[in-house]
Computed example of a mutant assay.
Amino acid sequence: MQVSEAERKGVDAPVVAAPTGRADQTLAKKRRLLRIAREEFIRQGYRAVTMDAIAQAAGVSKRSLYLWHEDKAALFRACLAAGVDNFPLMQFNEAADPETDLRAFGLALLREFIRPSTVGIARLLLREANEFAEFGPLIRHSRDEHLVRPLARYLERAKIVDGHCDSQAKLLLAMILTPVHDYLLVGDALPDERECTIHVETAVRTFLCGQTRLSRAA
């Protein structure tokens, strides 16, 4: 499994200073725009944010903003996609120990989901999902494409599960992210680093023990 340095530390990736090339400068401006737009969505909520306000906060012209993102919905989708890029990658390695792999993945994932910016987006989605029907498909697509299916493929290749791989991947993800769900739904405190480590180790061990029992019963 491969994770970035920012993921290992559980912090937001730093904004890279713009290189000298014009294309690189434009790319840096686009990245900065998405970071600021994400902050504005979290601070104000999806409904209250305007494209004009985001352009002003990011220091870009409205012409550039609409050239890069045709409307607020497209900009919000881009912000979600930028956040998804921070998710850890679950990759199969025959030489690796599956339990160690799953623990590393689970810890990187939980660290990502307790970051302030990720929690802020999650709160926004929960708060405004009933008003904006497009949020549901966006969330499901991100979850399935970037978390469920890669993890399901890993579980199948590592011979941890035999059939129903997607549902088993969803189960493991739910177990790993329980502290985040508890924080968002009932107001429990988010775990610190030590608590994250203990929780992920327990979740992965419990999941694997359950799979072993199912295999023996079959």
Results as ranks from 00 to 15, higher is better:
A95L: 10
L124R: 02
E195K: 03
Q25F: 02
D85I: 00
M51T: 02
L190E: 09
R157S: 11
P137V: 04
L89S: 15
N86Y: 08
L184C: 05
R143H: 11
G83H: 01
F41L: 03
D85C: 08
Y66M: 08
E40S: 13
R111W: 03
T178M: 12
R205W: 09
L151F: 08
H164Q: 14
D12M: 14
I36T: 14
G10D: 12
E131W: 07
P137E: 07
H199T: 01
G45D: 05
E201Y: 00
R216T: 08
E201K: 05
R8H: 01
G21E: 15
R123K: 08
L184D: 08
K9Q: 14
V11E: 15
F207T: 13
A203Q: 12
R153P: 00
A133L: 11
P116C: 04
R22F: 11
V60H: 06
R38V: 04
V204N: 03
G106A: 03
A133S: 10
Q211C: 10
T212F: 06
Q168N: 06
L89N: 12
G163M: 09
L177Q: 09
Q91K: 10
V15L: 15
T20W: 07
E94W: 05
R123G: 05
A158P: 06
L34T: 07
S142P: 02
V161C: 10
P179A: 00
D144W: 05
V200Q: 03
M1Q: 13
D144Q: 06
G45L: 05
F132V: 10
R157C: 04
F207I: 13
Y183N: 15
R153C: 12
Q91G: 08
I54T: 05
G59W: 01
F76S: 03
P14G: 07
M90N: 05
R38P: 01
R103N: 14
C165V: 13
G10C: 08
W68I: 01
T50N: 04
Y154R: 00
A96R: 13
L125N: 06
L185W: 13
A58G: 06
R31E: 15
A53D: 09
S117M: 00
C79P: 06
A189P: 06
E201L: 04
A18P: 08
E193R: 04
A82H: 09
S4C: 09
V180Q: 06
D192A: 05
K159L: 12
C209A: 13
S61G: 15
E5I: 12
T118D: 11
L172C: 01
A48H: 07
L109C: 07
H141G: 11
R31S: 10
L34A: 06
A122I: 00
V148G: 04
A73F: 03
R127E: 15
D97I: 05
I36P: 02
R111D: 07
A189K: 04
A55E: 05
V49N: 11
A217H: 12
E134V: 06
A122R: 09
E70A: 12
E201T: 04
R115T: 13
A95N: 12
P116K: 02
A82L: 07
M1T: 12
A53C: 02
D166A: 02
S64T: 12
K9I: 00
H146R: 13
L125V: 10
